[in-house]
């Protein structure tokens, strides 16, 4: 059933370049934010938000997950969610958040 996925909804090369530009701009913002004293208090949430954005864009478009069979999303997401869960649980247990 699902073998005709190639080339159908594949974004064009131009789109990939645009995405790369967006990613570069976000990276530049990340680095810039670090030096803005006014944002120091909210720095970690801002950085996390920006890098999650980059992460999602690369996975969704460059890794093509947005256009693929949902099984791939399930496989990737289960590993990723467990990974985040283990990381957060350990940090909680070691009192990093408190």
């Amino acid at each position: 059933m699902a073998t005709e996925h190639h080339n159908t909804e594949h974004p064009s090369s131009t789109k990939y370049v645009v995405i790369a530009l967006i990613l570069s701009v976000v990276t530049a913002i990340e680095v810039a934010v670090v030096y803005v004293e006014a944002l120091a208090a909210a720095l970690i949430p801002i950085l996390l938000l920006l890098s999650v954005g980059k992460f999602v864009v690369v996975v969704g478009y460059y890794m093509h997950l947005k256009f693929e069979h949902k099984l791939f999303t399930i496989l990737f997401a289960s590993g990723l969610i467990l990974a985040i869960y283990v990381l957060c649980a350990l940090m909680l247990l070691f009192g990093v958040f408190i």
Partner: peptide, 20 residues
């Protein structure tokens, strides 16, 4: 994709160690 899911946990363990 299953391997990538698995690799997430390799890196999560290393990042955990680093952050802890």
């Amino acid at each position: 994709w299953a391997f990538i899911g698995s690799d997430c946990l390799f890196f999560a363990s290393l990042v955990s160690t680093y952050l802890l």
